[in-house]
Design a protein around this nucleic acid. Structure first.
Length: 417
RNA sequence: GCGGCUGUAGCUCAGUUGGUUAGAGUACCGGAUUGUGAUUCCGGGUGUCGGGGGUUCGAGUCCCCUCAGCCGCCCCA
């Protein structure tokens, strides 16, 4: 049988409705907050991600869909979108003014990884980025927006895991201290940790090996090595979040997989997702714009895993049901034409009415309507035609009434359809 | 990229130490006097047993390869 490409899936039915629910909720929140949408291409030149996400990161190292196009250019299917958005802003010279530059995006990302529940090779992200503001207040605003979306979806149990990873200037001191700590008990750490200490030292901290965890007791904290400005920044953000009622817990061991983060880093995990528990993540990336050749611009942003959030929404709220419109069923040729005319007029007025053009026996029409979850069937036969009415049957109650054509629009308000 | 498990009807699954036309529930299709569903009754199996190769008189069942999915690791959304 024909199959979709490994790791890529078709979205339809209740899962797609869950996606749309999340998207609609997010778009409404973005609009309230003054965030504008941006859409960038799926394909980017490899350099965009190599220079930003980090040469040593797994994403660049082993997960990118890289290939040569017919013009022999090396391109990559975007593994994330922040770097691409920054590239676009630089290219169109949209940075450098003091005007707010608040952007959001919704789209698919691609990473070549081993399949697992909640981990797909094409997955979707909803992201928000705010450029040009370095204050903790801007971060609080962005996180308020984020929690507004989660709350709008009925997810109130989620908690932010928060850390500050300092700046490129302050981090070396921490790394040195941590390395010294590691070296002192070096033989006690597992093989993976010996690899991690070179690539991303913080990763050692969340090793699942019991011996490693024991050897880590009393390790230096990155938050103790912050410069004064970063320390104040971090303290102020925590103060704001507490005052604004955003639930968070400090996690000095929090690490992110992308190299470009500075100061604030955070993520939200969900216990409803199995091993792939990361629901969303983000943080500050003050150096990224300059790194890609733009004006020195502070920035903060986050990305939600749409596939995973939709999954959590379905687990918490149950399947997202469809809401089909009423079904207008003509009986016979004369009625078929009249029904089309009526439907045409009603559609012009914005009414949700599905026109049945199958010409099936009524019992099949009703059986089908029942399966589709249709609430109201409007019958138009010769008798109705002569009277200028439709017979409206509510499937749930079996109740049947005659409704003059002119009254259908008021009777068919979306709530009653 | 590493390790383990699974794959039979649209769905959930049964199928004996290898044995004859591959089953159940549900869903679906047709019918029970032509304009009334979700109940009932009657009828229908709709299948490349994931795919390919091998062993065997004989393979859904055993072996190898492969594809897909699931679980864990790595990592991340």
């Amino acid at each position: 049988m024909a199959q979709s490409v490994k790791g890529m899936r078709d979205l339809y039915g209740s899962e797609l409705r869950a996606f749309r629910l999340v998207e609609d909720t997010a778009r409404a929140a973005f609009a309230r907050h003054g965030y504008e949408e941006i859409r960038t291409p799926i394909l980017e030149y490899t350099e965009v991600f190599k220079r930003t996400v980090g040469e040593s990161s797994d994403i660049v190292n082993k997960e990118m869909y890289v290939f040569k196009d017919r013009g022999d250019r090396e391109v990559v299917m975007r593994p994330e979108n922040t770097a691409a958005v920054v590239r676009a802003l630089i290219e169109h010279k949209l940075l450098g003014s003091s005007d707010p530059r608040l952007l959001f995006y919704i789209g698919p990302m691609f990473r070549y990884e081993r399949m697992q529940a909640g981990r797909y090779r094409q997955f979707w992200q909803i992201g928000a980025e705010s450029f040009g503001v370095s204050t903790p207040e801007s971060e609080a605003e962005s996180l308020l927006l984020l929690f507004e979306i989660l709350k709008g979806l009925g997810l109130t149990q989620l908690k932010l895991s928060l850390n500050s990873v300092g700046t490129p200037e302050s981090r070396p001191a921490f790394y040195a201290a941590f390395r010294a700590f590691f070296d002192a008990r070096e033989p006690e750490y597992c093989e993976d940790c010996h690899r991690r200490i070179g690539e991303n030292p913080l990763r050692v901290l969340d090793c699942k090996n019991d011996r490693c965890q024991k050897a880590l007791e009393g390790h230096p904290l990155i938050t103790d090595f912050l410069d004064e400005a970063s320390k104040h920044h971090h303290a102020r953000l925590k103060e704001l979040l507490a005052a604004l009622g955003i639930p968070f817990e400090e996690n000095p061991r929090l690490v992110r997989g992308l190299d470009y983060y500075t100061r604030t880093a955070f993520e939200v995990l969900s216990s409803d997702l199995g091993a792939q528990s990361a629901l969303l993540g983000g943080g500050r990336y003050d150096g990224l714009v300059k790194q890609l050749g733009g004006p020195d611009t502070p920035a903060f942003g986050w990305a939600i895993g749409l596939d995973r959030l939709a999954s959590v929404v379905q687990q918490v709220k149950g399947e997202v049901g469809a809401t089909p419109p009423a079904l207008l069923v003509p009986l016979g040729e004369a009625a078929a034409l009249e029904a089309a005319k009526l439907a045409q007029a009603w559609w012009d007025r914005g009414l949700p009415v599905q026109l049945d053009t199958r010409g099936l026996a009524l019992k099949k029409v009703f059986a089908s309507a029942d399966r589709l979850g249709i609430k109201t069937v409007l019958l138009l036969g010769d008798g109705e035609l002569a009277e200028g009415v439709v017979t409206a049957k509510h499937l749930a109650t079996g109740e049947q009434t005659k409704v003059p054509f002119a009254e259908v629009p008021t009777r068919l308000s979306p709530a009653k359809a």
